[in-house]
């Protein structure tokens, strides 16, 4: 046996095997898995209504405080940078949703005692997680769209909204946040109580989104920073995806894939360590 390589079996074939006999097996597809994760998420949101609504209300309220408070203090300065603030807040709400969706799902499933059940899925734990992330991303985009609509209505500000461009840029911009979620989710498997890190990450994400990438170019190598830069250009100046220089898009794709991949690899490694130490089901 090779415990180091004994992961969730991503490369393993699945489905009916010889000798199954009369036991029918493997009627579910990846679509079934995605729908199961979507349905569970929707039902849990519905069954925890206060949590769902308070999350949305806090997002709106926090922006209201930033906008009205900032206008009272900074006046015209805030109005001049309002477009950037709205885009940044829009991206922050989605990045935070994606990050915490991954990281908190690990801790919640562990706390609920369901993590080991998910791990034993014949789809492979990775696919179960990815399906959950896709659902979480869609949820984040939905909340982000609602938040954006709220911000535009409150401020009266007009922004460009090339839907396809914004959608693509958003996915790539948020991908590093998912990678970070994987990393901290892996830490949660090993060290359990890491909620304080989650709270700190809210501010770290603000810093990454607001990084001065125009003046300090290398900052674009940080997670989310390049996505934030391009999304701001697109929504403030109406630049379409194909109008960006290929190098800018390559950097966006590169950082997205790299941080997502690194986060996922780190998660897998930490999950393996948690299994070797017998910590998978602990909380």
């Amino acid at each position: 046996m090779s415990p180091e390589t004994a992961g969730p079996g991503e490369s393993a074939a699945r489905g009916p095997r010889a000798g199954d006999g009369e036991r029918e097996r493997g009627t579910a597809t990846l679509g079934t898995l995605l729908w199961a994760q979507t349905k569970k998420r929707l039902l849990l949101m519905y069954r925890y209504p206060l949590n769902t609504l308070s999350g949305l209300a806090m997002t709106f309220l926090f922006f209201g405080m930033v906008f009205f408070g900032g206008r009272a203090v900074a006046g015209q300065a805030l109005t001049d940078s309002l477009g950037g603030i709205i885009v940044g807040y829009f991206l922050w709400s989605m990045a935070l949703g994606a990050f915490s969706g991954v990281a908190r799902s690990v801790t919640q499933e562990s706390e609920w005692g369901t993590l080991e059940q998910l791990y034993m899925s014949p789809f492979g734990y990775g696919r179960v997680m990815i399906a959950g992330i896709v659902v979480g991303l869609l949820e984040s985009v939905a909340w982000g769209a609602a938040t954006l609509a709220f911000m535009l209505a409150v401020t009266g500000k007009a922004l460009y909204l090339p839907v396809a461009t914004v959608a693509v840029l958003t996915v790539f911009a948020v991908a590093p946040a998912i990678g970070l979620g994987f990393f901290f989710g892996g830490l949660a498997l090993l060290y359990k109580r890491v909620e304080n890190i989650f709270n700190v990450m809210q501010f770290v994400l603000i810093g990454l989104i607001a990084a001065p990438t125009v003046g300090v170019v290398w900052l674009r190598l940080l997670p989310i920073a390049q996505g934030s830069y391009l999304l701001t250009l697109s929504m403030q100046e109406g630049i379409r995806l194909w109008e960006f220089p290929p190098t800018e898009l390559a950097l966006l794709a590169g950082t997205a894939v790299a941080y997502f991949g690194l986060g996922y690899a780190a998660f897998q490694r930490m999950a393996g360590r948690a299994r070797r130490q017998g910590l998978m089901g602990h909380y």
């Binding site: 004994a6 969730p8 079996g9 393993a12 074939a13 699945r14 489905g15 095997r17 097996r25 493997g26 609920w112 005692g113 369901t114 080991e116 059940q117 034993m120 899925s121 014949p122 789809f123 492979g124 089901g281």
Partner: peptide, 18 residues
């Protein structure tokens, strides 16, 4: 080759918690 194996097993590990 865990996935074909997991297709064949069910587990109740944490009582009412899971």
């Amino acid at each position: 080759d865990p996935r074909p194996a997991y297709a064949r097993v069910g587990a109740m590990l944490e009582g009412a918690r899971n």
